[in-house]
Design a protein around this nucleic acid. Structure first.
Length: 194
DNA sequence: AACAAGATTAACT
DNA sequence: GTTAATCTTGTTT
């Protein structure tokens, strides 16, 4: 098994925190992941796959290691990495990261923004990397967009998911403690517990 | 065919 | 703290 397959092997709630510190690359920009969030298909009311397969969420049902991209609020593209096994619709939302390569390019996308904000939040991160809706389904093993495992990290925290209305309190958001590029937590205005 | 909601962000008061 | 922006998708008529 390759390094990427090893990284993504297992239940999504175990895989998600392992993605912290990994590096996502597209074009000249690379981002070190500092915040991720797990979504587990059929048992997770917050997951786009909760009500079964649709045209949008098909990638979540496929094999691991592919990008699931969707448009949020008509404005922002958000990116997930599909997690196996094939047939189980799970994915990890890439919420934030630190630009570690191509920072001039990322800055050009958002003139005036502080460097730490360039990929701070799922919409901003996709913007920094130039990931758009048409990257939905991209195979991370094919090289256009790549994910490289990072090293072991000691200071990882977990907590409720950001912005979701249902099952917000499952502690499936994971982040690197103290990292300034982690996005601010915002609870959904009508978030349920459980 | 029409409609409501949204895994967000920036710009307001 | 509140709200507008903006459009795709899934659901309902």
């Amino acid at each position: 098994m390759g390094a990427l397959a090893d990284l993504l092997d297992g239940p999504v709630d175990q895989v998600a925190p392992r993605l912290l510190g990994a590096v996502l690359r597209h074009g000249q920009v690379a981002v070190r992941l500092t915040e991720v969030e797990a979504y587990d298909g059929p048992d997770d009311p917050a997951s786009h796959a909760y009500r079964g397969r649709t045209a949008r969420n098909g990638v979540m049902f496929g094999p691991p290691g592919h990008l699931y991209c969707y448009l949020s609020h008509g404005i922002h593209t958000c990116a997930n990495v599909s997690v196996g096994p094939d047939g189980r619709p799970s994915a990890v939302l890439i919420r934030a990261g630190e630009v570690v390569e191509g920072i001039e390019v990322a800055r050009a996308f958002r003139p005036g923004a502080p460097d730490r904000d360039l990929a701070r939040g799922p919409g901003r991160l996709c913007r920094a990397l130039g990931i758009r809706l048409e990257h939905d389904g991209t195979d991370l093993a094919r090289g256009e967009v790549t994910l490289t495992p990072g090293g072991l990290l000691d200071a990882i925290a977990s907590g409720p998911r950001t912005g979701v209305r249902y099952a917000a309190d499952r502690p499936w958001r994971h982040w690197i403690v103290g990292d300034p590029t982690v996005s601010p937590y915002r609870r959904h205005p009508r978030a349920d517990s459980v």
